[in-house]
Computed example of a mutant assay.
Amino acid sequence: MERIIQEPDAPEPEATRRAADVTESSRANRGWWDRNADEYQIEHGTFLGDDRFVWGPEGLDEVEAELLGPPEELKGKDVLEIGAGAAQCSRWLAAQGARPVALDLSHRQLQHALRIQEGVGGRMPLVQADAGALPFADGSFDLACSAYGALPFVADPVRVLRDVHRVLRPGGRFVFSVTHPIRWAFPDEPGPEGLSVAASYFDRTPYVEQDDEGRAVYVEHHRTIGDRVRDVVAGGFRLVDLVEPQWPAWNTQEWGGWSPLRGNLIPGTAIFVCVRD
């Protein structure tokens, strides 16, 4: 789970576990990403690159993983990236000859996408929208992807999956990565203190950071592995693979609660590869 990056004089938000519905989760997380996009890009921009497709903090790269298919087969494909952030993944897809559309809830994240786009050249559509209400016609895309975008933060993941299913053409593939559900049971710490179980894996109560008036300013939702599989099926997809990247020897950096220490012992990312029949 992420931590709030505070303004200098802003009071520390209260971290709690409580219910948070679709509307509250969307409002809180849009505000969080708008406020923290600058710091996020400064802190992680070098790792993410301008045009690299990375599935998570482990550094699994799509150029090697080929979870969307061989790079040479992406040419001419219409691809929707959900929770695109600064659109690094979409930029890589465009370099392979695909026609990506980068969608994000956060206006500020998309401003960073424009900034990078103006610096490196190339154009792609940037769309600000909620992942559960995609503003596209049925069957608009051949592929969809989401690298830690949307799914960890939404209260109703089946709603998102059904809408992705709707905008994909028959045979289309949706690949998404999320924090590995087992991490919910451990403290979000990169050191030894993050290796002891501190909560129930089966407790689905959302993690909420709220202001002094009780308004959510950040929300993250937990689903078990079984929940995620059932969500995929309820969304109309067929699950064809579940990838749990191992921590590579070359990656020596920490990213929040992700670290070489933890990554060599417990999984940090789960990637679901789904097909719309």
Rank of each mutant, 00 (worst) to 15 (best):
M1A: 08
I4T: 10
I5F: 02
E7M: 12
P8W: 04
D9E: 14
E12W: 04
P13F: 10
E14L: 15
R17T: 05
D21T: 04
S26P: 07
R27M: 07
A28V: 12
N29R: 10
W33T: 03
W33L: 12
D34Y: 08
N36K: 11
A37R: 07
I42F: 12
E43V: 14
D51E: 14
D51L: 02
V54D: 02
W55I: 04
G56A: 05
E58A: 13
G59A: 01
D61W: 07
E64Q: 15
A65R: 08
G69K: 06
G69N: 08
P70L: 13
L74S: 02
K75C: 13
G76T: 03
D78C: 09
V79L: 14
E81H: 12
E81Q: 09
A84T: 04
G85M: 02
G85F: 01
A86I: 01
A86M: 12
A87Q: 05
Q88M: 09
W92A: 04
G97Q: 11
P100C: 09
V101E: 02
L103Q: 03
L105C: 01
S106V: 04
L110T: 06
R115V: 09
R115L: 07
G122M: 09
P125T: 05
L126F: 00
L126A: 10
V127Q: 14
Q128F: 10
L134E: 07
L134I: 06
L134A: 03
P135Y: 01
F136V: 03
F136A: 01
D138S: 15
D142C: 07
C145F: 03
S146C: 10
A147N: 09
F153K: 12
V154M: 12
A155R: 15
V160R: 12
D163F: 03
H165D: 03
R166W: 00
V167I: 05
P170R: 13
P170A: 03
G171Q: 06
G172S: 11
R173L: 13
V175I: 06
V175M: 05
S177L: 11
S177E: 01
V178Q: 04
T179N: 09
P187V: 00
D188I: 00
E189W: 02
P190N: 07
G191E: 04
G194K: 11
L195H: 03
V197D: 00
V197G: 08
R204P: 11
V208C: 10
E209K: 15
R215G: 00
A216T: 08
A216Q: 07
A216L: 10
V217I: 12
Y218A: 11
R223G: 04
T224K: 13
G226P: 09
G226D: 05
R228S: 09
R228A: 06
V229H: 13
D231H: 13
V232Y: 03
V232F: 10
G235Y: 05
G236L: 13
R238I: 00
D241H: 09
D241S: 13
L242T: 02
P245N: 03
W255M: 15
W255T: 08
G257A: 08
W258L: 06
L261H: 01
L261S: 06
G263V: 01
T269E: 09
I271Q: 05
V275H: 08
